[in-house]
């Protein structure tokens, strides 16, 4: 039974649609690169659409490959673009979408428990306030660089 549910979830993911009135996540992917090794970090991107009639807040998530998962934003800090945790989460008004993308908001995966390689598929749970959590079972690891040049320098911010 569980298998069927998983299969259905991946079919829905492939079709890029979810029933109206719910929160939907499309085109999710996770970055693989030099940093996505054991003990390192990476980020999950995609589009979260709030199809409900009330505000929801994207507050975090869970995945087996990361010890720490946080919702991050890129912000101008002391004249430099840096990553930082979004306190209280990312608010998505009713009927609107939030795009998680390199150089912008993202779901930060830290303290990786193993190497994440190009073409790997991982399962990621997205947690919300105001809506049920959503688990995607096949988030593809894409080789990608660029878009967030300050990636390396922000390690200090992350220990906060």
């Amino acid at each position: 039974m569980k298998k069927i549910a998983v299969l259905l979830a991946s079919v829905l993911l492939l079709a890029g649609c979810a029933p109206a009135g719910q929160v939907e996540i499309s085109d999710a992917w996770v970055k693989s690169g030099e940093m996505s090794v054991e003990g390192g970090m990476t980020a999950v991107y995609g589009t979260i659409t709030n199809n409900t009639d009330k505000e929801v807040t994207f507050v975090g998530g869970e995945t087996a490959i990361a010890g720490l998962v946080e919702v991050h934003e890129m912000a101008m800090i002391d004249g430099e673009m840096k990553m930082q945790r979004i306190e209280g989460g990312l608010v998505i008004p009713a009927g609107e979408s939030a795009v998680l993308e390199p150089g912008g908001n993202h779901l930060m995966l830290m303290q990786l428990t193993g190497d994440l390689m190009a073409g790997d598929m991982i399962s990621v749970k997205f947690d919300f306030e105001g809506a049920d959590s959503i688990t995607l079972d096949s988030v593809m690891a894409k080789p990608a660089e660029g878009g967030d040049e300050s990636y390396h320098e922000t390690e200090m911010d992350m220990s906060n």
Partner: peptide, 22 residues
């Protein structure tokens, strides 16, 4: 297999005229 996984997803999307992931 990982390479083919990436290419399969890419080709599927491109064949629909859509951008690839990332």
């Amino acid at each position: 297999l990982r390479w083919m996984t990436l290419l399969t997803d890419d080709i599927a999307r491109l064949s629909r005229g859509e951008p690839v992931l990332a």
